[in-house]
Amino acid sequence: MKPIVTMTFPVSIQNLKKSYAAVPAVQNVSIQVQKGEIYGLIGPDGAGKTTIIRILVSLLDADGGEVLFMGRNVSQNVRYVRSNIGYMPQRFSLYRDLSVRQNLRFFGDLFHVPRHIQEQRLKALYDFSKLGPFQNRLAGALSGGMKQKLALSCMLMHEPDVIVLDEPTFGVDPVSRAEFWDILKMLASNGKCLLVSTAYMDEAYLCHRIGLLDKGRLLAQNKPQVLIERFDFPLYRIRSEQPHKIYTQLKATYFEKHIQLFGDGVYFIDRDKSGSAAIRRRLADLNITYDKFEPVKPTLENLFLELMI
């Protein structure tokens, strides 16, 4: 099957397959990302996020399917892809013994950016990253959040239209993460096309569209709000100081498939649509005591857990 209107999608992946020594890592994944869009690949370690991204940036070869970058086949246009894509690997991949400025200049030179343009871009990048005051500090001496911003800045030195980030906020505190995402949103509003992977569920809400990935398969993909609507069972939260006790008790009953443990309580999925009164009666029958029983709106994590089964 030929992809339709590929040219409008700077990134287009169709039926991608990849195995490592017969162990499938990615199975039939299809993703398209538009200009001005942030697409989030959401999933745990080992779900296949990094494999998909490395194939897209030409660091790995696919076993099957079609991967197009700017309408061109990636495996046949390796040099074009590498010269034009912006890629930030999962591991911090800058030179720790080079200063902030030296790193930026190095990547500017690597991508043949003329010196006077480099100077202009440095200024702009220092502005939004707030790295200006630290330009002579060694990259290895930066805090986690600043390292990520520097990595992003280095990649922006050649002003790529397509930006691919592999777990850019891994191990970074929530405040720095929020700042980082502000920058990503700004880039998207400037018309860039962004593909971001993350294991943080809360970052999924910041993407325009997301794909939930598990064991190499795309469980679902759409806008976060639309996806949540797919969770069409009533959901209740049983609040308690000791949610694990309630969870363990319920797990031993036929409700095993109805419950999810969260930090703030046990979530009860009303699969049979039996209604809150009925459920509370059943809880009482089982001698389960709790602080509060309330209907709640589902989250992406509820959905993910549901889809993983």
Binding site: V57, S58, L59, R79, V81, R82, S83, I85, Y87, M88, P89, R91, F92, S93, L94, Y95, R96, F107, L110, F111, H112, A151, C154
Partner: peptide, 13 residues
């Protein structure tokens, strides 16, 4: 080993 090669490979070098 340091992972820096991954970054410079995705460049015109």
């Amino acid at each position: 080993e340091f992972g820096t090669m991954e970054q410079i490979l995705v460049s015109p070098v």
